[in-house]
């Protein structure tokens, strides 16, 4: 439900990295434990990127699987409770919304 703020975050972060050229592809990795919906994000991104060098860029979203580790016995899995001893689990991955890389096209020809 907060896809729009994530989309605006993508645009801000990209504009900091890319000073010249046009962004044609955005590679994003979204953790399974976040509450982000891919399709809604694509729509939000379309809106958020309008009028910026990211307008029209393709948004490629990769999923990051959840991985958790038991705080007591070290058992790893996807559940919130340890499958071996029943203790609490800590998150190793799956809570991130990672902007991985951008594909940028720069026009070489000088224009006036």
């Amino acid at each position: 439900m907060h896809e729009l703020s994530v989309a605006l975050g993508i645009v801000d972060a990209a504009l900091e990295k890319v000073k010249d050229g046009r962004v044609v592809e955005v590679a994003l990795a979204v953790g399974e434990l976040t509450h982000i919906n891919g399709e809604q994000l694509a729509l939000a991104f379309e809106v958020a990127s309008r009028g910026t060098p990211l307008e029209g860029a393709r948004l490629k979203v990769r999923r990051i699987e959840a991985r958790l580790r038991c705080v007591r016995c070290g058992w790893q899995g996807e559940s919130f409770t340890c499958g071996r001893c029943g203790s609490a689990m800590e998150v190793l991955q799956g809570e991130e919304i990672l902007l991985e890389r951008l594909r940028v096209v720069e026009e070489d020809a000088p224009r006036e």
Partner: peptide, 16 residues
Amino acid sequence: MHRVSEVEVQQDLLQA
């Protein structure tokens, strides 16, 4: 002519 480049970012948007 145009040039295509890949820009590595690796930034967690929730980190801020």
